[in-house]
């Protein structure tokens, strides 16, 4: 198995100020294809701000984010024009929100939700769109008889799984996840994590996942960045950071959890 030597995404000196208030500051890292990076920290640590900047939802105050496009060229994502950026976001990228309502069209059927990206990139065959949608519903373990039901009739766990299917249908190479298991019951969380772990491995996805839950980071990620007050204070291999935390704050985080 070979690992590409060029990063998929590269962040250099990312800062985001909200007036005088620091969102995040001086964050640099490389993410490679197939790599899962967990960004952990408490609320207010800047991890969600960082995710918004990386995914171009927020313009940084300073720094640069570049991405290796499908044609192999590294592009500054903030220098892409609006059409290129939006195409990137709905083909080669995915974004899984904590609140599925932000990532789904609640009044549109499950099949329509999954099919939207396909139609957006030009699929014009109803039968094919529908069978692809059904295939994805199966992969995220949603009962196929619910294909024509709108997500407003779904449970929280189902909505989250539908959101994942909707994102993965165009076979993106990079998926951003913002607390994807937040607000779910523990048993529902476990099932979702298990599903995500399998999909990430099968599809070779690169993932940047923001979570405050170290167990989620342990299960899904290869690498961890610990953030506090807008800065990355510790970074490394996931099991290394969790089993041998170096920074006082990381030790506090790790010791605050029962068992991870």
């Amino acid at each position: 198995m070979t690992i590409d030597d060029q990063p998929l995404l590269s962040a250099r000196g990312i800062s985001k100020m909200y007036g005088q208030h620091v969102g995040c500051t001086d964050v640099s890292f490389d993410l490679f294809a197939g790599e899962v990076l967990a960004v952990v920290g408490e609320s207010g640590s800047g991890k969600s701000t960082l995710l918004s900047v990386l995914s171009t939802r927020l313009e940084p105050t300073g720094g640069a984010v570049s991405y290796r496009m499908r044609d192999g060229t590294m592009r500054d994502v903030f220098a892409l024009n609006e059409a290129e950026r939006r195409l990137l976001m709905r083909t080669d990228w995915g974004f899984v929100h904590q609140d599925a309502r932000e990532g789904l069209r609640m009044g549109i059927s499950a099949g329509g939700n999954v099919g939207e990206r396909l139609m957006a990139v030009g699929s014009r065959h109803y039968g094919e769109i529908r069978s692809t949608a059904l295939d994805w519903l199966g992969r995220v373990e949603i009962d196929l008889t619910r294909v024509d039901d709108a997500p407003k009739t779904f449970s929280g766990g189902m909505r989250q799984r539908l959101q994942i299917a909707r994102n993965l249908v165009t076979q993106p190479r990079l998926v951003f996840m913002d607390e994807p298991t937040g607000g779910l019951d523990v048993s529902v969380q476990a099932r979702l994590l298990d599903l995500l772990r399998g999909l990430v491995a099968d599809l070779g996805l690169a993932v940047i996942i923001v979570t405050h839950d170290l167990a989620v980071a342990r299960l899904l990620s290869h690498r961890i960045m610990v953030m506090r007050a807008g800065r990355v204070i510790e970074t490394g291999l996931t099991d290394q950071v969790l089993d041998d935390p170096r920074e006082p704050y990381t030790q506090l985080l790790v010791s605050s959890v029962l068992q991870v």
């Binding site: 291999l237 099991d239 290394q240 089993d243 041998d244």
Partner: peptide, 9 residues
């Protein structure tokens, strides 16, 4: 062992 495996720094 954990250091060799990279689990401990």
């Amino acid at each position: 062992l954990k250091m060799i495996y990279g689990n401990y720094r």
